[in-house]
């Protein structure tokens, strides 16, 4: 290099150029990862259907029409009608919306709480004992049982379902973050930061946290998928989203009694659940390969 003295302005320009290059490189690397692209595609398609689908139909999710009970799929009712004559297509889409909302909120909230718990318990030994015993306790309960009992106490509303699932799935994230943070914490560059006089907050959030992000994203996408399944189960059992409001779980429940005569009430919501969960899981595996190239490929493991 001939020119060794650069002005801050030139440096800034160089930094921007580098960032741009890096971004395009990252996008290309992501596109090369077929698994992640498929998962993302599936998820995006389902989101689009859920949020744009209701616009192209006249039906209302709660409108009861006893004359059109249990009609098979037709031009009028694309996915048929249920035992109250409500249009399944609209109900499934609204249910999907509710599921996505719950999945997203749970993934977000439990990530925020789980990361905080994980990082601080990895950093402070006494806190670790306390917090990890609590998470052990929470994980010892079957998720569904814990969720049912919490909702039985506080009542079945969407917020309560979200809060319950956050309680149930936060330990999963806290564990993963903690185990990653424990490794990073012992690295010499963290000790070097101590030697520089860095504050604990700075070390935890600026240096340990970024090193746990990749596994956090993978775990969060898993929590997203699992909480959608759990919500469907809760609704199926009647303790999820309360009855007249559509949810994938309670549409399945309504369809259960007529499963031999009206297959459309089971097949369509079921297919959507499979679609969301499959998309999320594939995306999660793909992201893991993308963010953490050192571990074995998810595909070759199977």
């Amino acid at each position: 290099m001939t020119d060794t003295t650069q002005t801050p302005k030139e440096l800034k320009a160089a930094e921007n150029r580098l960032k741009r290059e890096q971004r395009s490189l990252m996008i290309r690397r992501f596109m090369a990862n077929r698994l992640a692209v498929c998962g993302l595609g599936l998820t995006v398609v389902i989101c689009l259907i859920a949020f744009l689908g209701p616009l192209i139909t006249q039906h209302e999710p709660l409108k009861v029409n006893p004359i059109d009970r249990l009609k098979p799929p037709s031009r009028e009712h694309w996915m048929g009608t249920d035992n109250f004559g409500r249009d399944i297509y609209v109900r499934v889409l609204y249910g999907t919306r509710a599921s996505l909302l719950i999945g997203f909120s749970v993934a977000l909230l439990s990530s925020v709480i789980g990361v905080t718990i994980g990082l601080y318990s990895a950093y402070f030994k006494p806190l670790d004992h306390l917090l990890m015993r609590i998470t052990d306790g929470l994980m010892a309960f079957p998720a569904i049982l814990l969720a049912i009992s919490v909702i039985a106490v506080f009542g079945p509303t969407t917020q309560n379902v979200i809060l319950t699932l956050v309680v149930v799935y936060t330990p999963l994230i806290a564990r993963v973050v903690r185990s990653n943070a424990l490794v990073v914490k012992e690295q010499p560059y963290i000790e070097a930061l101590h030697a520089l006089g860095s504050s604990t907050t700075r070390i935890i959030w600026r240096h340990i946290f970024p090193n746990t992000v990749s596994s956090l994203i993978v775990q969060a996408s898993f929590v997203f998928a699992v909480s959608i399944i759990t919500e469907a189960m809760l609704s199926f059992l009647g303790v999820g989203i309360p009855a007249p409001h559509p949810s994938l779980g309670n549409i399945l429940y309504d369809g259960k009694n007529v499963i031999t005569s009206a297959w459309w009430m089971t097949v369509f919501p079921g297919a959507i659940i499979i679609g969301i969960v499959l998309g999320q899981n594939i995306l999660g595996d793909g992201l893991r390969d993308f963010l953490d190239p050192h571990t074995n490929k998810a595909v070759s493991k199977r």
Binding site: Q187, P188, E191, G197
Partner: peptide
């Protein structure tokens, strides 16, 4: 700490790789 500094042994792990 400003006046007392340290250079570590392992050049590979004493810099944050990210």
């Amino acid at each position: 700490r400003r006046e007392l500094q340290m250079v570590f042994q392992d050049p590979y792990s004493s810099l944050n790789p990210k």
